[in-house]
């Protein structure tokens, strides 16, 4: 029963794993030091015959204070500041640098509802909410090696769009549009989970992300355009919102 992180299938998941690893190392060391200190105090500074008097100090001398402040400061710099600087760089450089200008990115509109996910990608015309959209329920097909750019909405309650194999998640919130981008590095079938309690059947709100090599993906897309078994509803412009489509750019 090895307890490990889920398999990392993403381009950026290793950054998350790196942070978690660094934290485990540094906080682990700090905790071991605390534990040793505690053990020494408990074993050797216990009241017993021959040791009835504690060392009397209020710990208020400048030296005492300087020592505690120094340890706290070293901890803060080694763990907190280091991580904050690292996170700021990774957020602005990768996670929060959305591929708005990337024509190569696959854009996906996600509509969450109790208790399913609808995925919509634009058809050959490149526009959302038209009759050539590919709309699928709970299963999303994506190409390997291209950015996948999600915009998410919810029709009822707050849901959590969670990709364990991509080390990330974002909430889908009624009344606003949130976004997320990932990139699959290898083909495979990866689970999409709901992370936010969304009602009685929250535990069954499960989706599947199927990553295919580019050629295979194109093949699938061509079939989906004609095979109604591969997709759900076609977009009816009159009921765009109800069928989970909106204007990608304006979010309306």
């Amino acid at each position: 029963m090895p307890i490990v992180l889920p398999h990392d299938a993403s381009a950026d998941g290793h950054l998350v794993d790196g942070v978690i690893g660094y934290l485990t190392l540094t906080t682990g060391l700090a905790f071991v030091a605390v534990l040793l200190f505690l053990l020494i105090a408990i074993v050797f500074h216990r009241e017993r015959a021959g040791r009835t008097r504690a060392h009397h100090t209020h710990g208020n001398r400048p030296r005492d204070r300087a020592l505690t402040f120094a340890v706290a400061l070293v901890m803060f710099i080694a763990i907190d500041l280091t991580l904050a600087a690292r996170a700021a760089g990774e957020l602005s450089g990768r996670f929060w640098r959305y591929p708005d200008a990337d024509p190569n990115a696959l854009r996906v509109e996600v509509t969450a509802r109790q208790w399913s996910l609808t995925f919509r990608t634009a058809g050959p015309d490149g526009r959302f909410g038209t009759s050539d959209d590919v709309v699928t329920l709970n299963e999303l097909n994506v190409p390997v090696g291209r950015p996948i750019y999600f915009k998410l909405r919810s029709r009822d309650v707050v849901h959590g769009f969670y990709l364990p194999n991509f080390r990330t998640k974002i909430d889908a919130i009624p009344g606003s549009t949130t976004r997320l981008w990932v990139q699959a590095q290898e083909p495979g079938r990866f689970e999409i989970a709901c992370a936010q309690h969304c009602g009685v059947s929250h535990y069954k709100m499960r989706g599947l992300l199927v990553a295919r090599p580019e050629a295979e993906y194109r093949d699938w897309l061509a079939r989906a355009e004609t095979d109604s078994r591969l997709r759900t509803e076609a977009a009816d412009p009159a009921t765009r919102e109800a069928s989970g489509a909106w204007d990608w750019e304006t979010g309306r």
């Binding site: 605390v34 200190f37 505690l38 105090a41 408990i42 500074h45 216990r46 009241e47 040791r51 009835t52 008097r53 504690a54 060392h55 100090t57 710990g59 005492d64 505690t68 340890v71 706290a72």
Partner: peptide, 12 residues
């Protein structure tokens, strides 16, 4: 750290 300082060299 002050908790640890309190314990140090006490007569627990």
């Amino acid at each position: 750290l002050n908790w640890l300082g309190t314990l140090w060299r006490g007569a627990l």
